[in-house]
Nucleic acid binder design. Structure first.
Lengths: 238, 238
DNA sequence: TCAAAAGTGTTTCTCGTACACCCATGT
DNA sequence: ACATGGGTGTACGAGAAACACTTTTGA
């Protein structure tokens, strides 16, 4: 078969089809002060000027042919680094899904690939300072304003997903420090789920993880204002 | 603010950015003969001519402005109906995620939104006959050929997802007839998971569902070649 | 009447939940 | 010394798993 011929044909034809713009939108979570927080930015341009929205941006596509541009995950990592000021790949990132309802952006057809990111509380304070403009701000998800576009739906799906995954995966470890006490980990669960956990029972279920080699004990204790607590570390090869 | 002005500005600028093509790809599953099956089509054009691939097609975008085209799910439903010959919305459909690695299609940058569909075995025989060309064929996922593009990855993700979800959701009910015996339902589980289940234990766990009002008993029995079995129906409001 | 699948019983183990209690530390 | 949170013990119930058993049909 003639490589050049079909390829040129195909491209000429494909160029006649309308194509959508594609963006990534980020739901960036962190946990502190017993609350699940999400990072929002205030829009400076219409539409929805002045409203809060999820950070995001266009996926770089190159010319689409010889240069096919960047991967979706790479776009998400890039935007995440831009918006937070944190180094790329220092945070957990996972795809949530595609949102492409016609009319979700009044300007034009835009299909958005939603990602969610988890930022350790130790890094979170740096985020707003590092952001180029001061239009970024953390909100408790429980007291978060109505969002622009369909970002409210995306956020809701992200929260659902996180609540669903936290019991089945090791995602909670992305929201505590490298080393942590059982109580700190429990605080993350309580913030995410919005309910209190029995300290004794929670402890036991995570000691099972130590037996399974997922968690490992670190030497020393952490001072807590009361009886010092044992320190643990997530042992998984990331 | 001047609505017309910013919108025109925005569009003129946005048109300078390269945009990717966006497709939907479908992983269409069914279960019969104790096997999880997937519907593949044989490619008639390069690239990957002669190889098997997931069915799919372009998302209709309209002009992208005043006409923003069809929803992603609508595109998936449309393609599903086209490929299978089954009426739209007669089958279960769920989004799996976006696949957009540069180079995944050698022709040009194409971002694909993957969906998976579940077709009841009672409808499956009609599928190949109904398909426009005879290039569609069911394969057991365990004996499926290497696929074109990144469709092997998509299929693997879909299978993982289904195996993961079947215990947490009511997805299995989409793979049996409207009314079914416990053994028929068990056969679906065994096909999907690839392991045998203890009939007695399986039975009991699904009788718990009857107590919870998820399953309901239908009158009569189904002849099975041996002792007739009680018939049940999924009671959920879909 | 016999094989085979429907359906029942029983036992063991694990895990989630509830809750009482002891232990170590800062104030 | 005492309040507070770290850490332990115990007991109950639901459900997963293993497996022996009875029942009902078609061939």
């Amino acid at each position: 078969m003639d490589d050049e011929a079909w390829l040129k044909d195909y491209r000429r034809e494909a160029e006649h089809y309308a194509r959508p713009s594609v963006t990534v939108d980020l739901t960036i979570f962190s946990v502190w002060d017993t609350d699940l927080k999400v990072l929002l930015i205030q829009r400076k341009e219409p539409p929805f000027r002045g409203d809060w929205a999820l950070p995001g941006g266009f996926v770089r596509v190159g010319d689409g042919f010889d240069d096919q541009g960047e991967d979706l995950a790479a776009a998400a990592h890039r935007e995440l680094a831009e918006e937070t000021g944190l180094p790329e790949h220092s945070t957990y990132l996972e795809q949530l899904g595609a949102f492409g309802q016609p009319g979700r952006d009044p300007r034009m057809r835009i299909i958005s690939i939603a990602y969610f990111a988890l930022v350790r509380a130790t890094l979170a304070p740096r985020v707003v300072a590092g952001s180029d403009a001061s239009d970024a701000q953390w909100f408790s998800v429980s007291e978060c304003p109505a969002l622009a576009f369909d970002h409210g739906q995306i956020l809701a799906r992200a929260v659902d997903h996180i609540r669903d995954s936290i019991h089945r995966t090791n995602l909670a470890f992305e929201l505590v420090r490298e080393t942590f006490t059982i109580a700190e980990l429990r605080a993350v669960y309580e913030a995410v789920m919005g309910v209190p956990y029995d300290p004794g029972n929670f402890r036991r279920s995570f000691l099972r993880m130590e037996q399974d080699g997922i968690l490992e004990r670190c030497p020393g204790k952490r001072s807590t204002g009361t009886r010092p607590a044992a320190i643990y570390r997530f042992a998984q090869t990331r």
